[in-house]
Design a protein around this nucleic acid. Structure first.
Length: 504
RNA sequence: GCCUUCAUAGCUCAGCUGGUUAGAGCGGUUGACUGUUAAUCAAUAGGUCCCUGGUUCGAGUCCAGGUGAGGGCGCCA
């Protein structure tokens, strides 16, 4: 019996098994918030109902003790989940003590060190449920359109793009690398099956310390034969719309726990803006406005807003501190104000970082050199002006991977496309149309100084029935972070691996 | 790799321009009270102020180096 199904058992006696998420006690009654992995239910254990022996056992239970509680289901709209259980008996599997994670706020380092326990917290529970729904929605989308799921190898002998750092392992005495993309293998499989997608782990040994990088993450890479860049963009748009809408429908409770404003996500139903690299650069540098909004002026305003907010918070903190210092305040009120001050100081730290960063971003955007790739901050500046994902296509071919198809009408550009998520989440999708000509590919492989021999099998794909084809790569963790509006991708995966973190 | 911010009780933090015995809240323990929602009230235990060196009559506080962490850039999904 699970808390989720209580609505079907009103007035009946059921047994719930779970963990003590929180407990309050008085002389004759103990309240237990029971967590069973599917939901929560408050259980009322009265001394007269369960007897003195079980009652004293109930009183002694520590946070996260494992128990089974039998009792009658009663509707009570005030409660989380809408029901409570009037207990008639209690079975204790284990009485736990000194659970390290309390209901108070904790720091990131402490929480990540205790990730194996942190996963039990309400917010983390909601994130994992959303992640699960996203994964399901992704499979659902591709399967319903006759894509074939394939698994690309994790050990590879070479770097697909040659630029990033890879994890090296020993493969029977030869060096092998953990894959950083399954795309080339996806292309081969697409020539066999028509439409495929990979869904697997990806590894990058970049020593990044940012809120959107992991060393090990999950990537979804569809690849379609007979598909050009514009059809590819149509698919990306349809795909993101479908996944986001399915998750919004399936996870209302989770979104509420996360405090996610769903209206900010519903905008995916509108068409995604498609900008060429040239247009995007103009907007970024502030030479072109979007709906009357200018990138540089918007940033200036952001900085002013940050500073105004800092003044506001400082004043409020000072006021509360003065009120506490004045004395005569009840302990509960002091407590409340202290906590308020604590959380405001957290916000202040974040604002101080924004205050340091925004001027750098402005400089970066204003002085952007045409022909370069967009930096993380440039993406933020650009997407700041839109309320939905933005697609940027036709990039200078020099900054894109060797396999990108050149625009036949203007060979300065390669037919790559990046999808930038709103609200500062950056690049969630990178893809494009692939080069079909063996000749051009060979030239590019030489240009990138890649070993020709290991690409012979890849060139075979152009020798035997080469067709226009496209695909893209979606970072699952970045998608989860955006949909849940999390401030770090490390919360999007059960056990994150990033620079400096291998445990737990 | 570069830039930047930080490290004080189990947890979250305060500790001003260096000064005598380092504080608060939460959590723990004990008691009181209560259909409670992070309950409340009282009492109580709990510290190598990250490490090493320096300045000083005196360092949690200042300086240098180290270690660890947060964030930004680069790189990318």
């Amino acid at each position: 019996m699970h808390t989720k199904n209580l609505k079907h058992y009103i007035g009946q006696e059921v047994t719930l098994q779970g963990w003590v998420a929180n407990k309050r006690e008085s002389k004759t009654v103990v309240f237990i918030n029971l967590r069973d992995g599917q939901g929560m239910c408050q259980c009322i254990l009265g001394i007269d109902d369960i007897g003195e022996e079980q009652f004293s056992e109930a009183k002694s239970l520590g946070q996260e003790s494992s128990v089974a509680i039998t009792g009658k289901v009663v509707e009570d709209t005030r409660q989380i989940g809408g029901f409570e259980l009037h207990a008639t008996s209690l079975t204790v599997y284990q009485n736990a003590s000194d659970y390290p994670i309390s209901n108070k706020e904790h720091g990131v380092e402490f929480l990540i060190d205790n990730r194996h326990l942190w996963l039990r917290s309400r917010r983390q529970w909601a994130i994992m449920k959303v992640r699960n729904s996203i994964i399901y929605a992704i499979h659902n989308f591709f399967q319903s359109q006759d894509f074939v799921q394939m698994d690309a190898p994790i050990f590879t002998g070479n770097a697909a793009e040659g630029t990033t750092d890879l994890f090296e392992t020993d493969y029977y005495g030869k060096p092998a690398y953990l894959t950083q993309s399954g795309q080339l293998y996806g292309e081969a499989m697409a020539m066999a099956m028509g439409k495929i997608y990979t869904f697997g782990p990806t590894f990058r040994a970049e020593k990044s310390k940012t809120r959107r990088h992991l060393s090990e993450f999950w990537m979804i890479e569809p690849e379609m034969a007979f598909c050009d860049i514009f059809e590819n963009m149509d698919l990306i748009e349809e795909f993101l719309r479908s996944v986001v809408q399915e998750v919004i429908e399936k996870c209302p409770t989770e979104m509420e726990i996360l405090g996610r404003d769903i209206s900010k996500l519903s905008t995916v139903s509108k068409p995604f803006p498609r900008l060429s690299y040239d247009e995007a650069v103009e907007i970024l540098k502030g030479d072109k406005d979007v709906d009357g909004q200018n990138s540089l002026l918007t940033l200036e305003q952001d900085l002013k807003d940050v500073e105004a907010r800092m003044v506001e918070i400082n004043a409020d903190i000072a006021e509360r501190e003065a009120a506490i210092a004045a004395g005569g305040m009840k302990k509960g009120a002091i407590n409340f104000n202290q906590n308020k001050i604590d959380s405001q100081k957290q916000e202040l730290k974040q604002l101080e970082e924004d205050q340091r960063n925004i001027p750098q971003w402005m400089v970066s955007a204003r002085d952007f050199v045409y022909g370069n790739d967009f930096g993380g901050s440039d993406e933020t500046v650009l997407t700041r002006l839109f309320d939905r994902p933005v697609m940027v296509y036709d990039w200078p071919h020099e900054i894109k991977a060797f396999y990108m198809k050149r625009n036949p009408e203007d060979p300065r550009f390669a037919r790559g496309v990046d999808v930038l998520a709103p609200e500062g989440y950056g690049e969630i999708v990178g893809g494009g149309e692939r080069e079909t000509s063996e000749e051009w590919l060979v030239e590019k492989i030489n240009e990138h100084k890649l070993p020709m021999d290991v690409f012979q099998w890849y060139l075979d794909l152009r020798r035997y029935g080469s067709v226009p084809h496209s695909g893209f790569g979606l970072g699952l963790e970045r998608l989860v972070a955006w949909i849940c509006k999390l401030d770090h991708v490390r919360e999007t995966i059960p056990f994150p691996r990033y620079y400096g973190r291998l445990e737990p």
